[in-house]
C-alpha cells in the first residue's frame, strides 16, 4: 500500500470509510434541498443544493484519488487504462508518474469543488442587508482582503493554501451561522453552528499536517463529526411530525 506523506500509516484506508459516510450525507442534504427548491422555486434552496452537490463531488474525487494512490491494484488498473487509451508504452514509467498526475488532478477537482461549495454556503448563509448591514459589509471586506493576500502568497505554499482558504471561508460561514443562531435561538440552528465549528477546526488541523501527521486523523474525525451533526439535524427536520397548532404570520 502506498502511503501519502500526510496520512498516518495505520489510518490509511480508514479515512476512505469516513469520507464515504460524509459523501452519503452531503448527497442526502443536496437532494433534500433540491426537493425544496422544486417545491418553493426559491433560489436559495437551489444554491444550497448545489453547494452540497459540490461537496459530494469533492468527496467523490478524494475517494477516487486516494483509492488509486493507496492501493497498488487500483493504481496498476488506472495505469493500464491510461496506456490503453493514450497508446503510451512503458507501463512502469507511466505508473510512477501517473501516481502524481492522478493525485494532483484529483486534488485540484476536490479543491475547486470544496472552495466553490464553501463560497456558495457563505453567500447563501448571508442575511439581508437591512438586518445585518454592518456584519455583511465587514465579512465581505474580510473575504476580499484575504483573497488579495492569498494571491501574494499562493506561489510559496502548496496544499496548505487550500486548507487555509477553506479555514477562512469556514470562519465566515461560522460567523453567519452564529448570527443565525442568535436570531433564531433554536436547537437545530445551534447544532448547525456546532457542525460548522467542527468543520472549521478540521481545516486548522489539515493546515498543520506537516507538523504532525496524526493531525490528519483528528481533522478527519472532526469532518465526520460535522457531517454527522448535519445528518442528525436533517433527520430531526424531516421526521414525520404530529399535527399541531401553528402561528399564522401577520
Amino acid at each position: 500500500m502506498f502511503t501519502l506523506f500526510e496520512t498516518p500509516t495505520w489510518f490509511a484506508g480508514f479515512d476512505l470509510v469516513l469520507d464515504t459516510i460524509a459523501l452519503i450525507i452531503t448527497l442526502i442534504i443536496s437532494s433534500y434541498s433540491y426537493k425544496l427548491f422544486k417545491l418553493s422555486s426559491n433560489r436559495k434552496f437551489g444554491y444550497f443544493s448545489l453547494a452540497f452537490a459540490l461537496m459530494s463531488l469533492a468527496f467523490l474525487f478524494k475517494l477516487a484519488t486516494y483509492t488509486v494512490v493507496y492501493f497498488s491494484t487500483s493504481r496498476a488498473l488506472a495505469g493500464a487504462t491510461v496506456v490503453a487509451v493514450t497508446g503510451l508504452t512503458g507501463l512502469e514509467t507511466v505508473n510512477v508518474s501517473l501516481r502524481d498526475l492522478i493525485y494532483r488532478f484529483g486534488f485540484f477537482v476536490q479543491m475547486a469543488s470544496t472552495l466553490g461549495a464553501l463560497l456558495l454556503l457563505y453567500l447563501v448563509s448571508q442575511k439581508s442587508r437591512d438586518r445585518l448591514k454592518k456584519f455583511y459589509e465587514v465579512s465581505q471586506i474580510t473575504l476580499f482582503t484575504y483573497f488579495v493576500i492569498l494571491i501574494s502568497i499562493v506561489a510559496t505554499f502548496k496544499y496548505t493554501v487550500f486548507y487555509l482558504t477553506s479555514f477562512v471561508l469556514l470562519a465566515l460561514i461560522v460567523l453567519n451561522y452564529y448570527q443565525n443562531y442568535l436570531h433564531k435561538k433554536t436547537t437545530n440552528s445551534k447544532r448547525v453552528l456546532t457542525a460548522f465549528i467542527c468543520l472549521f477546526l478540521a481545516q486548522l488541523f489539515f493546515v498543520f499536517i506537516f507538523a504532525a501527521n496524526w493531525f490528519y486523523f483528528i481533522a478527519e474525525i472532526l469532518t465526520l463529526a460535522s457531517f454527522a451533526i448535519i445528518a442528525y439535524v436533517y433527520m430531526q427536520v424531516s421526521r414525520k411530525q404530529k399535527p399541531r397548532s401553528v402561528e399564522v404570520k401577520t
Binding site: 448563509s125 439535524v233 436533517y234
Partner: peptide, 20 residues
C-alpha cells in the same frame, strides 16, 4: 392540504436551522 402543511413546516425548520 395537510400534507402540504407538514411539508412546509419541515421546510421552515430546515430554513431556520441552516440560516437560509
Amino acid at each position: 392540504g395537510l400534507g402540504f402543511v407538514e411539508e412546509f413546516r419541515r421546510m421552515r425548520e430546515f430554513t431556520d436551522a441552516f440560516g437560509l
